[in-house]
């Protein structure tokens, strides 16, 4: 981390740098509560609802180089961030180039939105460097163009989002209710999201997503974590035939035994999480039990967070 910071600092010292600088940040996610195919304006679209993960985040900084239109990124393999920086400058009508430096604690290949987080933080950094603003929907489209498929991390609320189109299929108009997540790795191999063939759902599966969507809508409107958890479990189950988790039946058993609200998976990644209502008076008891049960099936490494990022708040009882 510190050597990365040093390198980032290094970019600040290049000759020709201006004092136009910008900074942006974006969080990651922890997979999807729901992913499938959904009707919007009379046709079907692939879409998803991500589970925000505020402990995962990216910071991007930008130093504008006035005399060249070139853009660079550090680390250099973050080419999508580079594309997004260039596209953002173009949209703002800026001729100057710049150096982007991206730092993230989000691992790649886990289905936690590392790429979209990089891209979103970068777009925000470029905007701040040039003193520009863009509507969030526009930021989402830049991200989709840079990445081919993007997660809705630029929004601060719950959405059903067409990740390949950058289109909001349904705006639930609330922030994700406060959920405690116990996360773990469910698939040992990292996954190249873009290399995965899109799931070919049967008509029955497509129609069944309507029932899941209805329940999610209710969960959002009523802050009903049990409903969100049931929808997440059903989505994980339906998608199991496309990117299977080997021990899924055992994980379902753990979900039931620990009386978690549900289990959520990265539909194109390796993480999964047990979901608990943060307002549950017996939250600590349930999560202790969950850690023990996970350990019993060989999952010793877990992490925890609240979906609203506020770790200090005690559950209301």
């Amino acid at each position: 981390m510190s050597s990365q910071q040093d390198e980032a600092q290094g970019t600040l010292l290049l000759p020709g740098d201006s004092d136009r600088r910008g900074w942006g940040t974006a969080h990651g996610h922890h997979g999807e509560l729901l992913q499938g195919v959904f009707e919007f304006a009379g046709s079907l679209h692939r879409g998803l609802v991500t589970l925000p993960c505020p402990i995962m985040s990216t910071e991007a900084s930008v130093v504008v180089t006035e005399e060249t239109p070139e853009w660079t990124v550090h680390p250099p393999w973050k080419t999508k961030a580079l594309l997004a920086a260039r596209a953002t400058a173009d949209i703002l009508g800026e001729k100057a180039g710049g150096a982007v430096s991206v730092q993230s604690n989000i691992p790649t290949g886990f289905g936690m939105g590392s790429s979209t987080s990089d891209v979103t933080a970068t777009i925000r950094a470029v905007l701040s460097a040039f003193g520009g603003t863009l509507p969030t929907d526009r930021i989402a489209r830049i991200a989709v163009e840079a990445e081919r498929a993007a997660d809705p991390l630029m929004y601060d609320r719950m959405l059903l989002f067409a990740h390949r189109e950058g289109l909001i299929l349904e705006d639930f108009k609330v922030r994700m209710p406060r959920i405690k997540v116990i996360g773990f790795v469910a698939r040992p191999e990292p996954i190249d999201t873009l290399a995965l063939a899109p799931a070919r759902y049967s008509r029955w599966e497509i129609e069944s997503f309507r029932a899941l969507r209805g329940m999610l809508r209710r969960g959002a409107a009523e802050g009903d974590v049990a409903a969100l958890g049931r929808a997440a479990t059903a989505s994980a189950r339906l998608n199991q035939r496309f990117l299977p988790i080997e021990h899924f039946p055992r994980l379902l058993q753990v979900t039931e035994e620990t009386r978690a609200a549900g289990i959520e998976v990265a539909h194109s990644g390796s993480v999964a999480g047990l979901l608990f209502d943060a307002a549950d008076p017996n939250l600590a008891g349930k999560t202790d039990r969950a850690r023990r049960e996970l350990l019993r099936i060989g999952i010793s490494h877990t992490w925890e967070f609240f979906t609203d990022g506020d770790d200090e708040r005690l559950p209301d009882s």
Binding site: E207, F209, R210, R217, A226, A227
Partner: peptide, 12 residues
């Protein structure tokens, strides 16, 4: 499926 959606939205 549309009926199921109405039901899951309307009933806890």
């Amino acid at each position: 499926g549309r009926v199921a959606e109405l039901i899951t939205e309307s009933f806890p």
